[in-house]
Simulated assay, not measured.
Amino acid sequence: MRQLLESVYGRIAPQFHEAAPLRPVSVYANTKAWGERQTALTLGAVGTSYTVVRYFSVYGDPQTIKPGSHSWVVAWFAARAEAGLPLHLNGGGHQVRDLIHVDDVAEATLRALVSPQAHAEILNIGTGKATRVRDVADLVRTHYPDTRLMETPMPPGDPLGGYASIRRMRTMLGWAPTVTLPDGVARYVAWLREHPAAIPGWMTAPTSTA
C-alpha cells in the first residue's frame, strides 16, 4: 500500500525533529511550509498566540478511502480485508509510518490551543514509534485470518518513511498519545463492520484489481 510522505520535512528518515530544515518534496507539502511561515508572520505581528502542529499519519473512523489515494493505510487494509481482497505490500511493506489515532490528534490539538507553553511553538503530533506497513497488515489480519498478502513492486518515489520526535510535544503539552495501534486497528475494524457502506462499490466491482 503506497503512502506518500507529503510533509514539510521531505525524505530525511528515520526520525523527524521540529528543528530540522524544511525540505518539502511536493506542491502540497510546500503549501504547508508556506502556511506555517505565514501564520508566524501574520499572527506574530499582532501579538496573537498560535501553535503550529504537524500531524503524522492520522487514522481512525470515520476515515474512508477514495480512488487513487495513497495514504490511510489502516483504512485501505481493513476495507480490502473486509471485502475479501488481498492486501498489497509495495516493496514488501518495509516502509515505516508514525500512525496516530484521530482521538489522540484531537486531544493534542485541544491541548495546543490552551497550553501557555505551546505559544509560538512548532509541535510534531505523532506517537514517536516507527511502524512498518507490513506490521499494519499483520494487525488487520488478526481480525481477518484468511486474508492474503500480496507483494507488489515499489512505486517510484515511494519513501521509506520515518517517525516523529515527540519530546517537544510531551514537554509543551504535558501529554502523550494513549491509543495503541492494536487497539486503534480493532476499533476501526469494529466500526467498519457496523458501517459496511463505508466500503466503496468501486473496490468490489468486477473490474477492480485484486
Rank of each mutant, 00 (worst) to 15 (best):
R97W: 11
W34F: 12
Q38V: 14
G93P: 10
R37L: 12
L22T: 03
T142G: 11
G35E: 06
D135P: 07
A106Q: 11
H17R: 13
N30T: 14
H17G: 00
Q117H: 15
P156H: 12
A108K: 01
R168P: 02
A186V: 05
H143S: 07
A13Y: 12
G91A: 02
V53C: 15
F77M: 15
A20L: 08
V189Y: 08
A112D: 04
M203N: 05
R80C: 14
L192N: 03
T180P: 03
F16M: 13
F77E: 00
F56R: 05
Y163L: 12
M203E: 06
Q63Y: 07
T207E: 15
R11Y: 11
V53D: 00
G47T: 10
H101R: 06
T48E: 07
P14Q: 13
V140I: 14
V52M: 07
P116M: 13
L192G: 04
S26G: 03
G35K: 02
L89Q: 00
R11L: 01
A120G: 08
L160Q: 02
V46M: 13
T109W: 11
S115T: 14
N30I: 01
V73Q: 09
H101P: 05
G91L: 04
A106N: 13
R187M: 09
D103L: 13
G44R: 12
F56G: 01
E107H: 09
L181H: 08
Q38T: 12
E107D: 14
W76E: 09
V27I: 10
L85V: 11
T147N: 04
Y163F: 15
T147L: 01
L43Q: 15
I122S: 09
Y28N: 06
A106Y: 15
A118Q: 04
A118R: 08
P177E: 08
M150A: 11
R132Q: 15
L99K: 02
G184I: 01
F16E: 02
K32L: 06
Q15H: 04
G93Y: 05
D158L: 15
Y28S: 01
A45E: 09
W191S: 01
V114A: 06
A79T: 15
V136A: 03
R134W: 04
N90K: 01
P24S: 07
G47W: 11
R111D: 08
T127Q: 03
A164R: 04
M154S: 08
V189S: 00
G44D: 13
S115V: 11
L139M: 14
P182I: 08
R148V: 13
W72G: 02
S7A: 09
P116E: 09
R23K: 08
V185K: 03
H88M: 13
L110M: 09
A78Y: 03
F56N: 00
L113W: 07
